[in-house]
Design a protein around this nucleic acid. Structure first.
Lengths: 148, 148
DNA sequence: GCTAGCACCTCCAGTGGCTGTAGAGGCAAG
DNA sequence: CTTGCCTCTACAGCCACTGGAGGTGCTAGC
């Protein structure tokens, strides 16, 4: 199976597969005489696992850890549970922030009655130093959830 | 007022101010003889506006548009309303996805009873091709909401 | 034998919105 | 004159890819 086949089998872009190989998430595969990568059913499973983890919002590093755990059959399940719990917490945190944001935006949107810019509530709200509080200082930002 | 003063007055990092200048979101300020940037109260207001828009999740390009509208006093408020409405829609979309994700993660987390990896439900779920459906194909991804 | 049309290859730049660092120069107080 | 901040420019890094340039390899049809 060539890279295009693996891509189709897992719904992954070809470039993404090569990227995973670059960062060591997928192993370097055998090559044909012409230098083309060849994959096995093992690779399909591994990549499917990774994609599933990514869809659930786990970072690549978390996916890497989960894969390691998967391939350590005599290990305990606790670590996987910890990773998932931690991740759930961060999802819940995001949800809270996003809900607060929606509430603020709803206020803003409703207040726009289509008049002149000079008395536009949207512009006005943005001009105020603190319309309510969206709570600053996240200290660290994670880029993991951009598409959600 | 030097750049550090503007930074404090608006709660923005110095590097961020220079970054905004680079991308033309903040105007190039006057300089002292020694080449240091000097700012006025106008700049404080403009930057505060930008930061407020960013806190509400507007992208930099949206902030740029809102600023333009703000400085066009004879214009209509409708465009600002459109930008805000569009933005609210995308926030609601994110919320929906994130809630679905939370539900899936809760299932996964609860199912982990701390046994051996070989019968770990988390690993098992990730190994399945489709545990439920997280609805694929976002077609375009926006990186706007990483911190939310 | 020639050409078209693929799939594959490597390498690199770009996305968004900053953040952090290096190395140099400036400026006021002690 | 030194100390300790400030400021300057310029550039690398974050995340998880994506897309493109420019090339090779292979097969099918004329």
């Amino acid at each position: 199976m060539l890279i295009g086949g693996l891509a189709k089998a897992t719904g992954t872009k070809v470039n993404t597969i090569r990227f995973y190989e670059d960062i060591g998430l997928m192993p370097e595969p055998e090559r044909t005489a012409a230098g083309q990568r060849t994959y096995t059913e093992r690779d399909v499973k591994r990549l499917a696992f990774i994609r599933q983890a990514r869809k659930l919002g786990f970072s690549i590093e978390e996916a890497r850890s989960l894969l390691e755990l998967k391939n350590t059959p005599n290990g305990s399940c606790d670590k996987a549970g910890d990773i998932a719990k931690q991740h759930l917490l961060s999802v819940e945190d995001r949800l809270t922030r996003l809900e607060a944001l929606r509430a603020e935006l709803e206020n803003v949107v409703v207040s726009c009655t289509g008049g002149d810019v000079s008395d536009c509530k949207i512009i006005e709200t943005l001009s105020q130093s603190r319309p309510k509080s969206v709570s600053a200082k996240p200290k660290r930002r994670s880029h993991a959830f951009s598409s959600l």
